[in-house]
Write a protein that binds this DNA or RNA. Sequence first.
DNA 1: CCCGATTCCTGTAGGC
DNA 2: TGCCTACAGGAATCGG
Length: 273
Amino acid sequence: MPELPEVETTRRGIAPHVEGREITEVIVRQSRLRVPVPEDLIERLVGARIGLLARRAKYLLVPLEGDGGTLLWHLGMSGSLRIARVGELPKKHDHVDLVLDDGAVLRYHDPRRFGFVDWLAGDAEHDSRLAKLGPEPLSEAFDGGRLYELSRRRRMAVKPFLMDNAVVVGVGNIYAAEALFLAGIDPRRAAGRISRERYDRLAAAVSEVLAAAITQGGTTLRDFVSGTGEPGYFAQRLNVYGRDGQPCRRCGAELRLVTLGQRASVFCGECQS
DNA sequence: CCCGATTCCTGTAGGC
DNA sequence: TGCCTACAGGAATCGG
């Protein structure tokens, strides 16, 4: 399931194949995604040239040179973008193709259709979905002080607090669980009752786990593959996510499973307090 | 304002 | 073997 490291891995994988290329054809096989594919997407894209790819939170930004606007792409939880070739037959759930002028095809696959591709006029930063996002977790704007200040007098559990995109972006269920384990914090603790020192450790753990996951090419649980088709290897490094009932890698205690904010949350009752 | 519940969707796993 | 159900989850939206 694509979180920030998987989106970044995708961006890096496809960028060399699409940047500077002209879009010659657009094929939409399924327009009913999380956000419907814009009806005028094809006419807006054909003939446009792709600029430098960017990422904001879990959104992939595909700028179109000149006044061509920007594609805002979200992979949802089962989406992937990969490079195919013209003539390669689409598989089930291959919803959108961007055919490029060198015969490459940027192909969007998404069984659960929680993702979407939308078109924005002009600068993406003004889009309402992006405007209210918190800082990037790997930027200097994100630190323990921010977590501490925003959490005062808030009673919600720290794990859903950490997954709030207004607090910090790109931290989904997998990496929230992993960061809390690394920081030794019980995911059930009220966000407003955690000390500044512990939030410093948590912010460092978030940055550490995300950077490590990007280095490993993301986490492949079932079917995530990068833009060039390789799986990610971070799954082997997971300490708690998906490991309930198994022994803690640090102390050997049996990992526990609770539900927080409607999300499965695994933690070690000994190492996290 | 805060926060929990609901919704979208389909592949997979587990029970019987 | 096959049918059925529960579950996975990002983020918008709704309601208390």
